[in-house]
Amino acid sequence: MAAELLRVEDLQVEFVTRDGVARAVNGVSFSVAPGETVAVLGESGSGKSVTAQAIMGILDTPPARIAGGSIRLLGRELVGLSEDEYRLIRGEQIAMIFQDALSALNPVASVGKQIAEMFQIHRGASRQDAKDQAIQVMTQVGIPAAASRYDSFPHQFSGGMRQRAMIAMMIALKPKVLIADEPTTALDVTIQAQIIELLQELQSETDMGLILITHDLGVVAEVADHITVMYAGRTMEEGPVDEIYRSTANPYTRGLLQSIPTIHSAEGRLPAIPGLPPSLFALPEGCAFHPRCPNAKDRCRQGEAPELVEVADRHRSRCWYAEEVMRSDNLR
């Protein structure tokens, strides 16, 4: 595999609020290579979206601030970059598509103009030139009769078409890395598959790195090369997708995997992880997952959280008993 495009190392993001400091992201690490798809997996509130926004440099500061760690894009450190420098990278080298395209698109500007804007602002294209290129990108993402839909407004598009328009806007300048923050959650199941397929197509055409933020394990199994599992702002486990599905080294990941229905589990209850994720203002001592962990022992309940340690080639887990979990009987 070619050299890595993006490396996130031990990223820490804090929110300073009236009720105290919340550690929304507390040590997240992963990397993305060209053509690779990295899935970031976790329940809501696990810090997935915050991580994505930190990479994009679009966190609202304050209340948020990057408290530590590093984000390197093509070898260049992004943490600490000035807003002006960061702006030139966004859209150009790294872009992001959002969950709800209806609220993420400007309601009072036509879809076409919002796409054409990328060429005008980043590339200095003329109005007509930008329009032609925008129509081309719209066609590329499968918007039928793109030229005649150029002047339509977001609310006149269907949900699937809006998400396609959003993708068109963000891949317009052929970024090296595309972050997709739950791109299909707001869509019908049939449309979901189409959008994922579109993302894969685009990826194979341009060899871009794709960071797919999701809680949909089905999609992950289908498209991801690499997985990062997050819990309470931390990476709990990361590794190649087959490796993780085959020999999970973390009880949390196992819990997630057990909660997907399969053909074999059609009868009886699906096992769910008991309890709720902790408040970011009051993380439990020791391993953050211990109150919900079936394997928790005394060591997990006190002192420092375990480190993220390598358990196999490119496979890391944050668990005192990673080896033990790996050896125990796996699911499939």
Partner: peptide, 13 residues
């Protein structure tokens, strides 16, 4: 979403 995340985390407390 950011604030929603922060708030839901808060609400869980």
């Amino acid at each position: 979403d950011l604030q929603v995340e922060a708030q839901s985390a808060q609400a869980a407390g």
